[in-house]
Amino acid sequence: MTHTLHRTGNTLENDYIILAMPVKGVNKEGSKQKLIDILDIGIKNGAVNAGDTQSGNIYSVGLDGLKERMKDGAVLNLTFDKKENVIKTLKEIKDLQNGMSVVVTGLMEHTKECCQEAGLQRHTVARSLGVWGNVEKLPEEKCMNIMTMCGHGLITATLIYDLAEKVKSGKMTLEQAGIEVAKPCVCGACNPVRAALLIKEFL
């Protein structure tokens, strides 16, 4: 699962994801409450989206719905638009010491600083070498920058153009359009604040 690794475009300095999960057969049992504790920390510290692939995200099922649906073994994503909120969240998760694995995605220089500030030792890293193959099949770049926020590929170009038109015609605000973009991304990894900034480029 590489779903937050291949994001493209500018404004990535406003884009972070903290993922938390247990390991099946090791610490999965009883993990639901531990993940909800981490979810609560993230929401308190200004997460702009949250979700779990099996349960949905806060814009599709609501925060209470997400908590109800989560099970032992869930994969929790918390999405942020501000580095300081990531640092606060990482510090509190560290203090919790509940044994869940935690991964932070973002610009590598920024996430390195986040780890230092939170007193965390970086352990394992993953990097993207980009898109290879028949790249002529890809959609236009400004669409790609929004669409790559859902690693499962569920944000469509058609939806983006439709939302941009609705913003242009005054039927919707940019902020509302950002949230509509985030809804299909079931795991909550899509950043609606960044999506709104990127939709602005279509106006």
Binding site: D15, M100, V102, V103, T105, A118, Q121, V125, R127
Partner: peptide
């Protein structure tokens, strides 16, 4: 550094500026 850095640099490939970092909190 990571075990992939040397080969990628030698081949002149570029990596995206973003990436994922496991912060080592899982137990045991």
């Amino acid at each position: 550094t990571a075990y992939f850095d040397e080969a990628i640099e030698k081949m002149g490939l570029s990596m995206y500026a973003g990436g994922k970092t496991n912060v080592g909190l899982g137990r045991p």
